[in-house]
Design a binder for these strands. Structure first.
Lengths: 340, 340
DNA sequence: TGGTATAATGGAAGCGGTTCCATATGGAAC
DNA sequence: GTTCCATATGGAACCGCTTCCATTATACCA
């Protein structure tokens, strides 16, 4: 059995209150007794029981993190920031990976009222009004990362702007036949990124007076392979696009494969822009819209921990900057197989 | 304030013991009172406080999971299995991502004695004897996934065999100039996979009477880009290899890039075998040694939960099967850019 | 009818902390 | 020498459960 605070108190010849005070280096304790207690702790190799602390303090010191498909770079990247920030704090991170809407709904329903968390962090999964009402009723702070709801604090990027930036970049390079490939604009998970980037894409086209061609927008389930197929269809069009904007780098890489298959060159024959700036993008020379995954996760934790200690009157809206990163897939030399 | 068991007891007109019995549907409770209690629970929207349960039961119902670089497919894949299995259980999963040896050492030192976990799951990070002594002293069950220590239960694959299988496959295809690219065989994280696969590689060469050429083994930090550089060096040799075995699919993909750059064909000019069978490998037509990431994670959880309830006398050694998956990078048609 | 085994139930004690309150101590002020 | 206050300290009560033990109610049998 591990020693308890009573063992320490007895060993040090003091009361448990005093030991507790030393542990929380609070209130005044005389230097002499403090040292006696510290010696006892050392001698007994005492570690306070966090469960008992949590019960007594009525705080769980635990944050629940709900993320979809955490194998995908965009999600695991944010999770990495969340983990790093939480490790710096005194909070534990309990992880939930959501790969079905059933599990998402179960998480949304059960976790807030489970009394296991001081706060909840939700990545990329927008809750319904009903969900949010449930969160509020449970009285638990919830922060969204890369998702939006008017009544919840959230840390986001401006995907409309990102789509706009990517498309505008292609337009400025002289392209007018610009395709967009993405996830379905509406999905059971209610992911919004593909839709918002689409809106930015449309906006940039409109602004440049380029008519939108429905056949230039293709979508499929997320994935490199699916994107490759989409790109193949685009290249098979009677009038194929000269540029493709993909809603994620993963999909851009799929498109790149399709372009290569055809023996076409990037960017000379088809220019390519992705989104996310995942690790391999730098190395593939992929022009992309960089979003700060890690920082988004860190910021989400900051907002949540702040909300736990000082509930904000109004939900916070935090937007992190994105950045167009120009690489070989739109400007400069060709990329493999033609590069040197 | 959330209602407590006392509120439920009062509302139902019974004692707290009875409510507790209903909650744990244990001991005999008359059908009538059970119903009264259930009604009260319903009416008050009562949820038992798990912290109080944990304190009373002196179990945390929490498992700590320590994984290195959880953005890498091999680790996140196992973590996914761990998460899925833990979700099925009544245990929470508290995550620690290790990207420095300092953090690893801090986790190994502090988590076992923190009294926060009923068990610890460690992915791919072999502990030292000293670490293990510390675990035992703390009296906490620890299960290793994809790592080995004689005194700890572990779930592994046979990497020596995997390296052997991959190499033998290339030998059977007639190759004799077979290179191996990998992480450094020794790393501060003490990862063993590159080393074991190397041993299998050497074994297969020996068995076939093919002399080992030191210049055919190159290593660098893990990563696609680093592997591409390694492969470039190999291809620059006076007598370049006709086949490359990479210690991971990520590295094989890097090698594939290097081969393409040179305008060489896979597999005609250079055959390629990877390891892991990550998601894109299927799609890239990469021959590889498949290891069951998800299942490994699930199994690790099973072993740990079992060990928590019934400490095994001897540590369990569990080995999951691996499988050579033959694809276009060694057999059959060429792969991009030459494929159709 | 009384005795006894059995089922159902209430409630105190305990899990291991924190914190409030009461008390002890020592010195300063008068 | 007494009073008073600040500081240090001990310990009970409490956080919200589980469980053991004692008690009561019920049923069965002789």
């Amino acid at each position: 059995m591990s020693p308890t605070i009573y063992d320490v108190a007895r060993y040090a010849g003091v009361g448990v209150g005093t030991v507790s005070r030393v542990l929380n280096n609070s209130s005044r304790v005389s230097e002499a007794t403090r040292q006696k207690v510290l010696d006892a702790i050392e001698a007994l190799d005492y570690h306070p029981n966090p469960i008992a602390q949590r019960l007594s303090l009525r705080r769980t010191f635990t944050v629940g993190v709900i993320t979809p498909f955490f194998t995908r770079p965009a999600f695991v990247g944010r999770l990495r920031g969340v983990e790093a920030a939480l490790t710096e704090s005194e909070y534990d991170l309990v992880l939930y990976n959501v790969e079905t809407t059933d599990k998402r709904d179960a998480c949304f329903r059960e976790l807030p009222t489970s009394q296991r968390f001081d706060g909840l962090l939700i990545i990329a999964l927008p809750p319904t009004d009903e969900d949010v009402a449930h969160f509020h009723q449970a009285g638990i702070p919830v922060v969204l990362i890369d998702a939006y709801h008017p009544a919840l604090s959230h840390v986001v990027i401006d995907d409309v702007k990102g789509g706009y930036m990517a498309t505008k970049h292609l337009i400025e390079l002289g392209h007018t036949r610009i395709a967009y490939i993405s996830d379905p604009l509406e999905s059971p998970f209610r992911f919004t990124s593909s839709l918002h980037r689409y809106q930015g894409y449309r906006q940039a086209l409109d602004e440049a007076g380029i008519p939108f061609r429905p056949e230039y927008h293709r979508w499929a389930e997320h994935g490199e392979e699916q994107a490759r197929d989409l790109a193949r269809h685009l290249l098979d069009l009677a009038e194929p696009p000269t540029a493709i904007f993909a809603a994620s780098d993963t999909q851009a890489i799929g498109a790149m494969e399709a372009i290569r298959e055809r023996g076409l060159r990037v960017p000379q024959d088809v220019a390519l822009v992705g989104y996310d700036d995942i690790e391999v993008s730098h190395y593939l020379g992929l022009t992309t819209v960089r979003q700060p995954f890690f920082e988004t996760g860190v910021k989400g934790v900051e907002v949540l921990l702040q909300a736990i200690d000082y509930p904000p009157g109004e939900p916070l809206h935090i937007e992190l900057p994105i950045e167009l990163v120009c690489r070989r897939s739109t400007v400069g030399g060709a990329i493999p197989p033609e590069n040197d």
